[in-house]
Amino acid sequence: MSEVQAAPRRRINLGFDRFSGLYVWAVLIIVFSLWIPDLFLQVSTLKQILSFQAIAAMVALGLIIPVAAGAFDLTVAGTVSVSVCFTAWALANHHGVIVAAVGSLILGLIIGLVNSVVVVKLKVDSFIGTLGMSSILIAVAYAITQNSQIVLSVEGYGPFLDFARGQFLGLPYTVYYAAVIALIMWWVLEYTPGGRYLYAVGGNPVAARLAGVRIGRVTTIAFVTSGLVAAFAGIALEATIGTATPNVGDGYLLPAFSAVFLGATQIRPGRVNVLGTLVAIFLLATGVSGLQLAGAPSYVTNLFNGVALIVAVALAVRTASRRK
């Protein structure tokens, strides 16, 4: 060997690129703490942020998987709606909790499989294919609810509602479900061959295939995963709100995609990842709830989410091009 190189040198790096989200988060917390200390610096604020974001976090975490493999899954919102409506319908018609829950998960699985047939077998671009599927799922949700609202009363359905509303250490169970899903996704993406295959397919499908990765199978598993997670999020959402309307999932589409793409600028820049997604979700939620507590009108949520996504990704693009 002509030249022995030293072990990878670690530069002292405050990580303004990789951890910019954490810095911004800290700044937000400081700003709101100084601005509205009585309202913001409360344990209840923290609990509120965590529990409000638990469902959105689950949907986003499931979505990471197909996006890592380079596929858009726009059906996550529709899957949440279908799952919410089916759960409510099954319970309201006295089929029992098992049928409601297992049925919803099976629906999520089927949606994932159909998505993968459309994308892998019919070779429809994932964006277009899942857009079409989303429309179909809206129809399904309306069909299930017969175009009306289903309400589950606390008296009749207490045990089911406790599935989400039950608390441990002052936090609703949904927060723990989201945490467990995050752990599983993190393990899959960072510590299993499956994670490598997902990123390889997302990075260069031709190269991945020639390296022996079965891209059709990987894509199928990705869609099934996001379908199952979205269906689970739907069950938890139904238990949280106790009512079902066919468009209930719509509000989760943009936040989930925002969180995943914003998350791709964090921790491991340039690739979607679990920790980055979590940072993104809670960063956005902190900003939004701080602004609301300070008296901002309700449209500020969407405004803030949109601006934050564009600014964060624009900054990430700039740092990436400077690095080259």
Binding site: R196, Y197, Y199, A200, G203, N204, V206, A207, A208, L210, A211, G212, V213, G270, R271
Partner: peptide, 17 residues
């Protein structure tokens, strides 16, 4: 086009098989 995972590490490129 056919072999590189450009944004991934040499480690990931080599152990992908």
């Amino acid at each position: 086009a056919n072999a590189s995972l450009m944004d991934q590490t040499l480690r990931e490129n080599i152990t992908i098989v």
